[in-house]
Design a binder for these strands. Structure first.
Length: 866
RNA sequence: GCCUGCUUGGUGGAAUCGGUAGACACAACAGACUUAAAAUCUGUCGACUUCGGUCGUGCCAGUUCGAGUCUGGCAGCAGGCACCA
């Protein structure tokens, strides 16, 4: 049996001791390959999702290295974040200690997997050597006006006691705590990601698949496009009919609304403003009932389900405005719960005939519904499509909708009542967190000078370690000395900002720091320019908008700050599927671990102790709460790293969900044993001493090449191709076929030079998946130190890989009736003669006349008869 | 509601350009070896069949000599977005 434990330990020790995976020096960026997996949060345990992620990256890294690329393949830790603080509160462990302990134990699980990381470049984002640099970025962004402080309604997570970015609110709930988010008015720091909205959107085109570059998955591009949510329209001014009704608290002569459908202005029947709109506030001062209404609106829960069922509510302010296109028409102004202050101008005009929402509202408040578009056929209102002709619209009549839109825009611009305007759904990135375990925001609040950045030479602003977690809230806030300092400008007593940065800040640039992890400067431009962009970035699709949008934004900002000269950090993005497992419930509905359950012959499940019936729930993502988890450490101990690596890359394409099945892992383990047995047989059968690299096949003419050599080259071609297309599961399937071919060939007739080359191909094509085995077997068979040979890929002889005989399918009227064996590039006549002689073909052509014959060289002959 | 994917045996999945559907595995079944078990090896494994074949890639049409693959329509599943004006 294959002694995987000692073998794997032996080679891991050597790789580490000899720095086998050290990043090579790079003189130019030619032939470089940067392979990166999304860095893990040090939660304490490596789970199967991590394993899948890192195996994909490692196979790619090893393959590219073998192909002759200079590979950068680093790993690190996304080490700031809430769980560390929660542990501090619950168990009294300092966040730093907790994090460091977790990093150590997770690394202990990673090392036995045999991943080819350059550990000399390891980063932990919680170290001041790391976060000090991002404080500098923050200050430079501040000075460039990309950072600002704003008081506004924010998403507040009542459990984590912190502000959340819009991206972190999922279904109206905090992405971490899972409790409903509440609105809270707070001062917080924001980054002007909206300044980059257009670039973030336009560059998505470049991330598409291109020749030689796989690009980003369409799904992710679409998600980012939707998230940015560009819409083109116009701002339009609606003058107040009687300014005195508005009162002195509102300072504009008109209400400005944003619309994407200016062509429907002739169908307007009301205007509505958000409850946070200044006009609403102004009116509420004189109207107690309105004040009450606004209060109620704010209390409306913001959860998705509540929003979709919530009825549209409006309050008529009594103010009336003039329709700018139709000055004799006046419209009522409502405060309405469905208008959002954060989007557009916080004010809309309603055209009920052509908008679902306006339609509902108009019906409820008995407002007129005037159609202005006549669709091609009889449709019911509201008619929201844009094909049709304009009606009841004065100078827009008879125009197509899109023409009318352009004309309406021209009109409002010419008459000074509005202009074209582009709006985005994307909002600025709120980065303040009222937490301890994060990067301190390097700002000092001076009573005289206001917010003043810390001097660059005073960086990093280091987190204090003597903090107490016995009270709720931010420990930095109540630390006796940390926040007290002097203003860098005027020297007066001042306090530090006690908010820390969102942890997505750290992960927005770590991939750059790997190029120069020990540099004194934040980034070594030369190194960054050589290695970036990341060629293959591998991670979960759950980061499609959060992390991946921030990282792109950050790269653009750093370009504008002069740190680098490219805009897009990741050329190809590979999003791996989840690792799933059946989950089990006992009769009481309690979740059970797979180890507590056993399968019976009839396919049903019972508990291991007591044999109680167990319900198997459909396979779903492995999670602690459902207990459907498999511990990678345990699997490595039982089956070995190579078997686990091969297994997790087998059978399922990398981007699809993977169904865990321990029995199938057993199959991979058996394959390892088979490989080892075959290696032993070959090492006894052949003496490969006197040369390692095959030198034979380049000399031999293809017609003299033994069949097995041709087979090996055919599979080398298939496996290489599969790897280049990220079809890892196919590469393994092909290798299994190759193994079977080798097993079935007789060794006696095989010249040693041919055997050498076959063995070389056989071992090196599985090496990216099973590197420990490959080393051990190479050493055994070639009797040399294999380390230098693992980073080479066998040279393909295309002429040997060519099939020289082909099986040609013979069809009659498109139905398969037989096959003909022939030599490559055989002519039609030969095939046709052979085909017509086939019994199965004759039966269907006999007595009929041949109308047509289609011949596809080397593939097929189709005889059409009538 | 909108957007994006996906749908092939009992299961995971193969099938470059439209050209032999089911590679490679898992499970199952049968057999060999064995005192026995494990391990290993061999075989069967889409449905129907009068054993000649016929049908079969979610459903209905179309293009084609030929469709899992292309086009149109429909259904189901998954994911994303959503009072976004």
């Amino acid at each position: 049996m294959y002694a995987f434990r000692s073998v794997e330990e032996k080679w891991q020790k050597r790789w580490l001791a000899e720095h086998s995976d050290k990043t090579p020096e790079l003189s130019t960026s030619k032939q470089k390959c940067y392979v990166l997996e999304m860095l893990p949060y040090p939660s304490g345990k490596i789970h199967m999702g991590h394993v899948r992620n890192y195996c994909i990256g490692d196979v790619l890294a090893r393959f590219k290295k073998a192909q002759g690329y200079k590979v950068l393949h680093p790993q690190g830790w996304d080490a700031f974040g809430l769980p560390a603080e929660n542990a501090a509160v619950q168990n009294g462990i300092a966040p730093k200690t907790w994090t460091e302990r977790n990093i150590a134990s997770m690394k202990d699980t990673l090392l036995p997997l045999g991943l080819s990381y350059d550990w000399d470049r390891e980063i932990a984002t919680c170290s001041p050597e790391y976060y000090g640099h991002e404080q500098r970025f923050f200050i430079e962004m501040f000075e460039k006006g990309l950072v600002y402080q704003k008081e506004s309604w924010v998403n507040w997570d009542p459990v984590d006691c912190t502000v959340l970015a819009n991206e972190q609110v999922v279904d109206g709930k905090g992405w971490r705590s899972g409790v409903p988010v509440v609105k809270k008015l707070m001062k917080h720091w924001c980054l002007r990601i909206t300044d980059y909205a257009e670039k973030l959107l336009n560059n998505l085109e470049r991330l598409r698949e291109q020749p030689g570059i796989a690009g980003w998955p369409e799904k992710v591009l679409t998600m980012q496009r939707n998230w940015i949510g560009k819409s083109e329209g116009a701002l339009v001014r609606f003058e107040f009919v009687d300014i005195s009704t508005v009162g002195n608290d509102y300072h504009d002569q008109a209400l400005v609304v944003f619309t994407t459908r200016p062509e429907t202005l002739f169908g307007a029947s009301f205007c509505a403003v958000a409850c946070d709109h200044p006009l609403a506030a102004a009116c509420a001062k004189r109207d107690h009932e309105l004040e009450q209404f606004i209060d109620d609106c704010r209390k409306t829960p913001v959860t998705e389900s509540a929003l979709s069922t919530a009825e549209k509510q409006g309050y008529d302010t009594g103010i009336r405005v003039k329709n700018p296109l139709k000055p004799d028409q006046t419209l009522p102004v409502f405060v309405a719960n469905f208008v959002l202050m954060e989007y557009g101008t916080g004010a809309v005009f309603g055209c009920p005939a052509h908008d679902e929402r306006d339609f509902d509202f108009a019906k409820k408040y008995a407002l007129p519904i005037t159609p202005v578009i006549e669709g091609p056929t009889e449709e019911r209102l509201p008619y929201v499509a844009t094909n049709g002709k304009m009606i009841h619209s004065d100078f827009l009549n008879d125009l197509a909708v899109l023409e009318a839109r352009a004309k309406a825009c021209d009109w409002v611009e010419q008459h000074g009542v509005g202009h074209r305007k582009v709006t985005y759904r994307l909002r600025d990135w709120a980065v303040s967190r009222q937490r301890y375990w994060g990067c301190p925001i390097p700002i000092i609040c001076c009573p005289k000078c206001g917010a003043v950045p810390v001097q660059i030479e005073d960086l990093p602003v280091v987190l204090p370690e003597d903090v107490d977690f016995n009270e709720p809230g931010n420990p930095l806030e109540r630390h006796p000395s940390w926040k007290h300092t002097k203003c860098p400008q005027c020297e007066s007593e001042a306090v530090r900002e006690t908010d820390t940065l969102d942890t997505f800040f750290e992960s927005s640039w770590y991939f750059l720091r790997y190029c120069c992890p020990k540099d004194k400067e934040p980034l070594n431009k030369e190194a960054v320019e050589k290695w970036l962009p990341v060629d293959f970035y591998i991670g979960g699709v759950e980061h499609a908008v959060l992390h991946l949008l921030y990282a792109r934004f950050f790269t653009m900002v750093l370009k504008d700050l002069g740190y680098l000269s490219f805009e897009e950090p990741f050329s190809t993005l590979l999003t791996q599927g989840m690792v799933c497992h059946t989950s089990f419930q006992d009769e009481k509905g309690q979740w059970l671990y797979p180890s507590e359950v056993e399968r019976q012959n009839d396919g049903s499940y019972v508990t291991t102790d007591g044999k109680h019936p167990v319900m198997a729930v459909r396979s779903e993502k492995m999670s602690k709460s459902k207990k459907n988890i498999i511990d990678p450490e345990q699997m490595v101990k039982t089956y070995g790293a190579d078997a686990l690596r091969i297994f997790i890359m087998s059978d399922t394409p990398y981007d699809k969900d993977f169904d865990w099945n321990t029995e199938a892992l057993d199959g991979s383990w058996k394959y390892m044993n088979k490989l080892w047995r075959l290696s032993e047989i070959w090492s006894r059968a052949f003496d490969f001493s006197g040369g390692v690299r095959p030198s034979y096949s380049s000399a031999i003419p293809s017609e003299d090449a033994p069949e097995l050599l041709k087979t090996a080259h055919r599979y080398l071609k298939k496996i290489t191709r599969a790897l280049e297309q990220f079809a890892f599961h196919k590469a393994i399937a092909f290798h299994r076929e190759l193994t079977r071919e080798i097993e079935n060939s007789s060794l006696e007739v095989l010249p040693v030079e041919v055997a050498r080359e076959v063995a070389y191909i056989w071992l090196l094509t599985i090496a990216p998946f099973a590197p420990h085995f490959a080393c051990e077997a190479f050493e055994l068979m070639f009797r040399v130190d294999p380390l230098g040979f693992m980073s080479s890929w066998p040279l393909l002889r295309e002429d040997l890989a060519q099939e020289e005989s082909v099986t040609i399918a013979v069809q009659v009227n498109g139905k398969l009736r037989g096959t003909v064996e022939a030599t490559l590039d055989v002519d039609q006549e030969t095939v046709q003669t052979a085909a017509l002689a086939l019994e199965g073909v004759y039966k269907f052509t006999n007595g009929k006349s041949v109308k047509r014959v289609i011949f596809v060289p080397n593939k097929l002959l189709n005889i059409v008869v009538v």
